[in-house]
C-alpha cells in the first residue's frame, strides 16, 4: 500500500489547469498545422492561420487560448493500493481547480445551480470521474470543456437493427447540426454501447485520446476514418464559413451493451481540445 497526501493532488491539478489552458498538446498543434496545409478554401486557410497564431500568442504571452477556459472535467484513475491521507480527495481536486483558475487568471464559468445561475466565483466544482485501477499510482487527466461545442453534443438511443449505418448517420447529423456553433474544425468523440450514461462517458473519454491514435479494434478504426472523411465532405470548414477541414479527428470508444439497445453519444469539442495527464 502507498500513502499519497492529497496536497499532491491539489498541486498537480492547479498546475495542469494553468498549463492546459495556455498550451495545446503537440498532437493537436500538429493536426491544426496539417489542416492549414490541406485546406482548399482561402478563407478557411486564413482562419486556420489565425488559430495557429492564436496558439503561439497564448503559449508565449500566457493569454488563455480561448476565453472559455471551460468546466474542469477530471478523470481520476486511482490504484487500488493507494491510501489518500491529509484530507478528502474531492476537496483536494476542487482546491486545485480553485487555485489554478484564480491564480492562472482563467475564467470562472461555473454557476452553483442550473436554474438560479449564481457564479461560484472560482470555477468549482469540477466534474470528477473516478475509476479504481490496478496498482499504487494515481493518474489524473484534466480536460476543461468549453460549452460552445458541449451544447452541440447529442445522445441517440438507436435500435440494434440500425447497426453501424445508424451510428454513422447519428454522428454526421450531430456534426452537421453543430455547424458553426461548435467552432470547427472540431474534434468528435463518439461513445457506442453501454447504457445511457456509459456511452456519454465513453464519448467524453474519447476526446482525451491522442488525436493521432486510432482505435485498437480494426472495425472501429475503420469507422473512425470513414466518419472523418464523411464529416470533411460536409463543406462546413473552419469557422463554418466553408471549406474542407470541418473536423480534425473522430475518436470512437465502444462498450458491451444490452440485447435491446444501441446507445450512441456524440461529444463535440472545438479545435481547442484541451487534455493533459499526469501520473503520481
Amino acid at each position: 500500500m502507498r500513502n499519497i497526501d492529497v496536497s499532491e493532488i491539489t498541486a498537480a491539478v492547479r498546475e495542469m489547469c494553468i498549463e492546459v489552458n495556455h498550451k495545446l498538446s503537440p498532437d493537436m498543434v500538429g493536426k491544426l498545422t496539417d489542416a492549414r496545409e490541406r485546406e482548399e478554401s482561402p478563407l478557411g486557410r486564413q482562419i486556420l492561420g489565425q488559430l495557429i497564431e492564436n496558439m503561439d500568442i497564448a503559449r508565449e504571452e500566457m493569454i488563455p487560448i480561448c476565453q472559455d477556459t471551460g468546466m474542469a472535467v477530471i478523470f481520476l484513475e486511482v490504484g487500488q493500493d493507494v491510501h489518500f491521507t491529509g484530507g478528502d480527495i474531492e476537496d483536494a481536486v476542487n482546491q486545485g481547480v480553485r487555485e489554478g483558475y484564480t491564480e492562472g487568471y482563467l475564467r470562472k464559468s461555473v454557476v452553483r445551480d442550473p436554474i438560479d445561475r449564481v457564479n461560484t466565483g472560482d470555477n468549482t466544482p469540477a466534474v470528477i470521474h473516478y475509476s479504481i485501477v490496478h496498482g499504487e499510482g494515481v493518474k489524473i487527466t484534466l480536460a476543461p470543456k468549453g460549452f460552445g461545442s458541449e451544447n452541440m453534443s447529442r445522445l441517440f438511443m438507436l435500435k440494434p437493427a440500425q447497426g453501424i449505418e445508424g451510428v454513422k448517420e447519428a454522428v454526421i447529423a450531430a456534426v452537421a447540426d453543430a455547424g458553426p456553433n461548435a467552432c470547427p474544425p472540431m474534434v468528435v468523440g463518439v461513445g457506442v454501447g453501454g447504457t445511457f450514461e456509459k456511452c456519454a462517458l465513453l464519448a467524453k473519454k474519447a476526446l482525451t485520446r491522442n488525436v493521432n491514435e486510432r482505435s485498437k479494434i480494426p472495425y472501429v478504426a475503420e469507422l473512425e476514418k470513414e466518419l472523418l472523411e464523411k464529416i470533411n465532405c460536409l463543406g462546413l470548414g473552419p469557422g463554418g464559413l466553408g471549406g474542407r477541414m470541418t473536423a480534425l479527428n473522430v475518436a470512437v470508444e465502444t462498450y458491451p451493451t444490452h440485447i435491446a439497445g444501441l446507445p450512441v453519444a456524440v461529444n463535440i469539442c472545438c479545435h481547442v481540445n484541451r487534455h493533459i495527464s499526469r501520473e503520481i
Binding site: Q50, L51, E53, N54, I63, I65, C66, G148, P180, C270
Partner: peptide, 13 residues
Amino acid sequence: FAAVGGAGALLSK
C-alpha cells in the same frame, strides 16, 4: 458579424 471562435488570445491584441 462573426469573429473567429477560439482565437481569444489573438483577438485580445
